[in-house]
Amino acid sequence: MIEFSILAEMFYICSNGEKMAFLTEEELGSLKIEQSVFHIVGPKEVHFQLLEAFDATPHAAFFLDRIRSVNNGNHYTFLADAAARTQLGRIDKDAAQFQAESENLAEAFNEGHGGSTVIGAFLIFSLNCDTGRVFALLKFEDEKVLRYDIEDGTSGKPKPTLAEIGRTFVQNRHALQKAALVRLDGEGSVCLVDRQNPQRPAVYFEQFLGVKRVRNDDDLTRILVDVTKAVAYNHSDKLPADVMTSLTKRLYDATQSGGSVDGEKIEDWFTSIVGPLPKESEILTDFRKQLERARISGESFVLGKDAIPVPRNRKVETGLGVRVTFPAELQSSVVNIDEKKGLITIQDEIKFNDIELDASRRARR
């Protein structure tokens, strides 16, 4: 039996379910393997080898765990001429096409998989869940593994023996490097994960699937900022006062940092704005729920510097209702705000110093 290791590039393709970018817990729990095959792919044509389907039933728990371990990412839709969607659609309609179409998919993948990539196994599963058929495509890269045993040594002490395993399937979640989840309903929806480049998934994976991203970095940045602001205001009584008084500025400065967002560590973004929170915090729970409602849960992207308009004015309000509005670009040498001392210092020529009448009241005669 040939064994392979996982430095995995992985795809999930789901059809006939409700319109979500990832499988629900119910769908994940109901997954069953119907057909399975893997082909050998590599950087050179000599590595490419088509194989017959195999029975994955004895190892179903292992493979299903790999599928369940990667279940969100960046959202895509299929291009009109996406060959992968057509090939998977043929399998969806006729299970007898599984072997032939799996070979077509492997050949297409292998063509884009060349260059400096290493030899590995390209697996395709036809599964079923409560909401319909599911396809899982996985790329496992070869990895050298040493296996050891203990035997009697000539000196009387036990000695280790080492055997090199050229190809193995390894149970390691972090070894799953790339993934995509796809539905074949309507135009099709795709959820693609690349753990090596979460913000910029490998182009050849996008080209192989024939997909385009639903939202660009600026769109995602705007939605993330709006969700963060809304959640912070909803829980303002539980967050530090200095955070709430400067929330918009904190969000704007964060978008200008040139940083990025990792969808699998989305809490890091929120706590970078509002400060540390326990993992079980109800605020973080609400934040995650709001991201799901906004349909950007699991998205990884580079923060768009042009997503948020440049602030025109800065506003300061004191406890007694004194409000000061001034151009945001003014230096502290002109307007200085000392929050600890409760002191606002303005050094500039005064051109207006008068009272403002309430225009909503009728003037007395």
Rank of each mutant, 00 (worst) to 15 (best):
I337T: 10
A175E: 09
S246F: 10
L138G: 07
D268G: 02
I119K: 06
D149P: 03
K93Q: 14
V46E: 14
R133C: 03
Q87N: 14
I40P: 01
I273L: 15
A82Q: 00
Q35L: 15
A254P: 04
D306K: 12
D242W: 02
E282G: 09
S297N: 07
S15A: 11
L138Y: 02
Y252N: 11
Q331K: 15
K212N: 06
E107I: 10
I273E: 00
R68T: 03
V170C: 10
Q177A: 08
K32Y: 10
S246K: 11
K32S: 13
F48V: 11
Q199K: 01
G115S: 13
A136I: 02
L220A: 00
N172W: 01
L31T: 05
K139L: 11
V170T: 11
E264F: 07
P278K: 15
D226Y: 04
D81Q: 11
Y233W: 12
I124H: 12
N104G: 06
T245E: 14
F169V: 08
L138N: 02
S5H: 07
N128P: 01
V324M: 09
F4C: 03
L176D: 02
L105G: 01
L181G: 05
S360L: 09
K159Q: 13
S36I: 05
Q99A: 14
E18N: 13
T221W: 08
N197D: 14
H235P: 05
A82E: 03
H235E: 07
G263R: 01
K279Q: 14
G259F: 06
V37T: 04
K289P: 03
A56N: 07
D306Y: 06
E111H: 02
V261W: 05
V243W: 10
A202N: 04
E111F: 08
D242T: 11
E26Q: 15
S126K: 06
E151V: 14
A307V: 13
F98A: 02
E282S: 14
Q35S: 12
Y252A: 04
K178L: 14
A83Q: 09
D348P: 00
Q87Y: 12
L220I: 05
P198V: 05
R314N: 15
G29C: 13
Y204P: 05
A83C: 08
E280G: 09
D338V: 06
G132N: 01
Y233P: 00
Q49V: 10
L146I: 09
A230E: 15
E25I: 07
L251M: 13
V41R: 00
A307T: 12
S126F: 01
D130E: 13
I296H: 02
H113G: 00
D55Q: 08
V211L: 00
L23T: 01
A180M: 06
G258C: 11
K351P: 03
G120T: 05
